[in-house]
Amino acid sequence: MPFLVLSNVSKSFGPPEARTEVLRDVSLTVEKGEFVAIVGYSGAGKTTLLNMVSGLLRPDSGSVTLNDLEITGPGPDRGVVFQNYSLLPWMTVAENIALAVDQLFPNWSASKRAQHVDHHIAMVNLSHARDRRPSELSGGMRQRVSVARALAMEPQILLLDEPLGALDALTRATLQDEISRICLESGKTVLLITNDPDEGILMADRIIPLSAGPGAILGPAIAVDLARPRDRKALNHDPRFKSLRSQIVSWLLGPGGRPAVSVSRKLVLPDIEPEDLDQPRPMIGGRRAPRRRSEERRETVELPS
């Protein structure tokens, strides 16, 4: 029996006269214990999709069910790691997590709750920072707190919204491994939103591309049949990794993933091009090199759909 089911979900924003459709007829099923990644353009509607699972948004049409129960609002059975950390800045790491734990497990003894908090702080390797405030933490540390808080809620499903999007590449790599490990150990069902195909391949069991909006649709699911734990150094040379990536990227860049658009971009020349000495010397005011950056060109390419 499928665990999480989105069927024919559509969502639009804006007043009736100027409505933009963000998601069109999106269907998705996730099995229990599965790690699914949704990869898509920014602004495509990934957060919107996730928010309909978390219950923060309701679909205009279609339904979202978890365990056969319609999702009508947010709840602690779905632990969310928000795109921008969303830690409360006036609380320490421990207090942020305790806010969730105290709220969700009021029947536990105080010491059991405190232990639960500390356990999850240790799980993300932040015991040394338990009494620090978010402003004293690096981006990567904040995101780990955010993951710890979501897991401490003991949710049925973990929803990760571009959890590593704002981090530098090295921190991101470390955290990808760390979060994969933690999720795997906890056996949780995970829905990961990302704009990085590699991240999806490294972390997920199944990847579903989301086309560019407006009116984004989900592409064909791509199973990632790579053994865990996945070693990013080895994967770099793995032909299966390359083929997976090219499947995802080609769908996203292909006609399904991107409606006909014209891309307009600025072409910036190097500040000064070397002078071409073969050319004859110009008259005063002649148009010969060196060229300057002010001579930018703009070109518009119509992409075939």
């Binding site: 609002g73 947010p74 779905r78 969310v80 969730a100």
Partner: peptide
């Protein structure tokens, strides 16, 4: 949103 998810 945190408050809503936690049902505070």
């Amino acid at each position: 949103n945190i408050a809503r998810v936690l049902k505070l």
